[in-house]
Amino acid sequence: MFRTVLAGALAAVVMGAGMTAQAEVVSPEDQIKLRKAGYSYMSWNMGKIKAQVIDQSVAYDQGQILAAARTLDAIANSGMGALYGPGTDRQVGAQQTRVKPEMFDNFPDVAQLSAGLAAATGKLVDAAEADDRAALRTAFAEVGQSCKACHDKYRQR
């Protein structure tokens, strides 16, 4: 419960005052580049968990699962909202984005979605620490649904 409340508060701060401060330090082109890298790294870690826990196409390694879950949780709580500064709703230089412009008018909703992702990745870490494969499958699905909820609303196809 504390982790969920903390994640919600953190998301609100990041999406508010923190965004302006970070956007001044990192150029719009680099903001897009960095957030794409973060999401790619999340995808890679989701793939490791999927291969071992869901598909079982790779031997299960609790240490790898825990590292991947912690990585996902760290990124979800890293303040990536600061990488959605003004002007990053369109191509900047060589960096293209698939974010829908309307996301920039709905930061309270985005903060709520971000808090949901942080809560879901927290559950994934808890399941990985407990080495509970059933809980891992459930938590993995929750993380995926959390990602999908944001993509469905704010990602161009």
Results as ranks from 00 to 15, higher is better:
residue 73 D to A: 13
residue 5 V to H: 10
residue 22 Q to Y: 09
residue 118 A to E: 14
residue 157 R to W: 13
residue 77 N to P: 00
residue 135 A to P: 00
residue 50 K to D: 11
residue 5 V to G: 08
residue 65 I to S: 01
residue 90 R to A: 05
residue 83 L to C: 00
residue 10 L to N: 14
residue 151 H to E: 07
residue 25 V to S: 06
residue 12 A to L: 14
residue 138 T to H: 07
residue 157 R to L: 13
residue 146 S to Q: 02
residue 6 L to K: 15
residue 2 F to R: 15
residue 111 A to N: 00
residue 11 A to G: 15
residue 155 R to K: 15
residue 117 L to M: 14
residue 156 Q to W: 06
residue 19 M to R: 11
residue 53 V to C: 07
residue 50 K to A: 07
residue 105 D to M: 08
residue 70 R to A: 01
residue 155 R to A: 04
residue 81 G to A: 00
residue 156 Q to V: 11
residue 38 G to P: 04
residue 32 I to R: 01
residue 152 D to F: 13
residue 25 V to R: 12
residue 71 T to H: 05
residue 18 G to D: 09
residue 144 G to M: 09
residue 86 P to R: 09
residue 150 C to E: 03
residue 130 A to C: 05
residue 76 A to K: 07
residue 61 D to I: 00
residue 58 V to H: 05
residue 132 D to V: 08
residue 43 S to C: 05
residue 104 F to S: 04
residue 70 R to V: 06
residue 29 E to Q: 15
residue 149 A to I: 05
residue 100 K to F: 03
residue 88 T to K: 04
residue 22 Q to S: 09
residue 45 N to V: 03
residue 125 V to I: 04
residue 103 M to L: 15
residue 152 D to Q: 13
residue 145 Q to Y: 15
residue 44 W to A: 06
residue 122 G to Y: 03
residue 72 L to E: 02
residue 144 G to S: 14
residue 31 Q to C: 03
residue 2 F to Q: 14
residue 33 K to I: 10
residue 136 L to Y: 02
residue 67 A to W: 03
residue 103 M to Q: 15
residue 58 V to T: 15
residue 149 A to G: 00
residue 96 Q to W: 09
residue 62 Q to E: 13
residue 19 M to G: 09
residue 59 A to Q: 15
residue 120 A to M: 05
residue 55 D to I: 06
residue 87 G to Y: 02
residue 26 V to Q: 13
residue 94 A to W: 15
residue 22 Q to I: 12
residue 64 Q to R: 05
residue 132 D to F: 02
residue 33 K to C: 07
residue 128 A to I: 09
residue 31 Q to L: 06
residue 3 R to S: 08
residue 47 G to L: 01
residue 144 G to I: 09
residue 105 D to K: 12
residue 127 A to Q: 08
residue 33 K to E: 12
residue 113 L to R: 10
residue 44 W to D: 05
residue 42 M to S: 11
residue 47 G to D: 02
residue 71 T to P: 00
residue 41 Y to I: 11
residue 47 G to V: 01
residue 7 A to V: 14
residue 130 A to K: 12
residue 75 I to G: 06
residue 16 G to C: 04
residue 30 D to N: 12
residue 56 Q to W: 08
residue 117 L to E: 11
residue 121 T to K: 05
residue 108 P to T: 08
residue 111 A to P: 00
residue 41 Y to W: 09
residue 122 G to S: 10
residue 25 V to K: 13
residue 117 L to I: 13
residue 70 R to N: 13
residue 121 T to Y: 04
residue 5 V to C: 08
residue 57 S to T: 15
residue 127 A to V: 07
residue 121 T to S: 10
residue 39 Y to M: 12
residue 17 A to T: 14
residue 52 Q to E: 10
residue 83 L to W: 03
residue 36 K to V: 10
residue 19 M to Q: 12
residue 151 H to D: 04
residue 147 C to D: 02
residue 103 M to W: 11
residue 33 K to A: 12
residue 62 Q to T: 13
residue 36 K to S: 09
residue 83 L to H: 02
residue 7 A to N: 13
residue 153 K to N: 09
